[in-house]
C-alpha cells in the first residue's frame, strides 16, 4: 500500500499539494484527475520521491519514501514523468535495459534479459528495438520509456500523463496495457490522466483533485457525476451512460 499522510508541498506561498491524506494501491488501476495546477503531477512526484516533501509523510509498503535507500525503493516503485527530454542517444533496447539497473547495478542476468524482451514485446517495440530514441516518433519514444518502467518489474507503477503525445489508438492501447499489467502481474498502477473519459473507462478508482486537495475519491460510478465533475473542472459536464459506463460530454 501507498499511504500518504498530511503531505504538503509549497512553491513560494501557494501549497500545490495541501495536507493530502490518501491510501493508494488497493486496486489495480487508480486514476488521478483534475484541472491544470490541481497538484496531480506534484503528488505523483512526491510519492515517487522525485520531489522532497515540505511536511507530512509518505510510505510505500511501510517504507518511508524520504528515508529509504534509493535502490530499495527502485525495486518497489517505478515512476515516469511526462516530459522526457532526451539528449542521450540510446537504442530502445539499451533504454529498456536500464530499467534493470536497480536489480543488478548494470549487470544483466538471464532473468533480466527476459524481462527486457518481455517489456519490449508488451509495448510492440520489437521492430524498433535497435533504433536510436532520437530517430523515433514521440509516441514510440513514450512507449519505450514505459517499457523501461515495466522492465523495472516493480509492484507499484506511477505514470504521469502517459497518454500525452500519443494518438488515439496508442492511447487506448496503453490503457489496455495498464489493465493487463494489473490483471496478469498484480501491478498496482497509479496514473495521472488528462482525459476523464479514459479514467472512467479503464480505472477501478478515480481520485479527483483541486487546488492541492482531494475533493472526490471512489469508483468511476461515484466520481463520474455532473455535480462532482463541475466542482473538479469548473465546467458544466454532462454525464451520459453509454453501454453501461459513464461518459462525460464536455466538448461544447
Amino acid at each position: 500500500m501507498i499511504s500518504v499522510a498530511s503531505a504538503t508541498k509549497r512553491y513560494g506561498r501557494t501549497a500545490v499539494v495541501d495536507d493530502v491524506a490518501l491510501e493508494l494501491g488497493d486496486v489495480g488501476v487508480t486514476a488521478i484527475i483534475g484541472a491544470n495546477g490541481a497538484g496531480k503531477s506534484t503528488l505523483l512526484s512526491l510519492i515517487g520521491r522525485l520531489l522532497p516533501l515540505d511536511s507530512g509523510r509518505i510510505e510505500i509498503d511501510g517504507l518511508d519514501v524520504g528515508a529509504t535507500k534509493g535502490d530499495v525503493l527502485a525495486r518497489l516503485v517505478a515512476v515516469l514523468r511526462q516530459e522526457n527530454h532526451l539528449t542521450a542517444r540510446l537504442t530502445v533496447r539499451d533504454l529498456v535495459g536500464f530499467g534493470r539497473f536497480p536489480h543488478g547495478r548494470g549487470r544483466i542476468d538471464a532473468a533480466g534479459r527476459a524481462a527486457i524482451e518481455e517489456a519490449i514485446a508488451y509495448l510492440d517495440l520489437e521492430p524498433f528495438a535497435e533504433r536510436f530514441l532520437d530517430e523515433l516518433s514521440g509516441g514510440q519514444r513514450q512507449r519505450a520509456f514505459i517499457a523501461m518502467a515495466l522492465a523495472q518489474d516493480t509492484r507499484y507503477l506511477l505514470l504521469d500523463e502517459p497518454l500525452n503525445s500519443l494518438d488515439l489508438r496508442h492511447a487506448v492501447e496503453i490503457m489496455r496495457l495498464l489493465r493487463r499489467l494489473a490483471a496478469e502481474r498484480g501491478t498496482r498502477v497509479v496514473v495521472v490522466l488528462h482525459d476523464l473519459n479514459f479514467a472512467a473507462a479503464h480505472a477501478d478508482r478515480i481520485v479527483a483533485m483541486r487546488d492541492g486537495r482531494v475533493i472526490a475519491d471512489g469508483p468511476p460510478a461515484s466520481v463520474m457525476r455532473s455535480e462532482v465533475l463541475e466542482a473538479v473542472y469548473d465546467l458544466p459536464i454532462d454525464v451520459r451512460e453509454i453501454d453501461g459506463s459513464p461518459v462525460g460530454l464536455y466538448f461544447r
Binding site: 530499495v72 536500464f98 536497480p102
Partner: peptide
C-alpha cells in the same frame, strides 16, 4: 562507473527512479 553516467545522462528524474543518488 560507466552505467551510472549513462543513467545520469537520462536526467535527474530517471536517475532517481532507478535508485541512483
Amino acid at each position: 562507473a560507466a552505467d551510472r553516467f549513462t543513467v545520469v545522462g537520462l536526467g535527474r528524474d530517471v536517475a532517481t527512479n532507478l535508485g541512483l543518488h
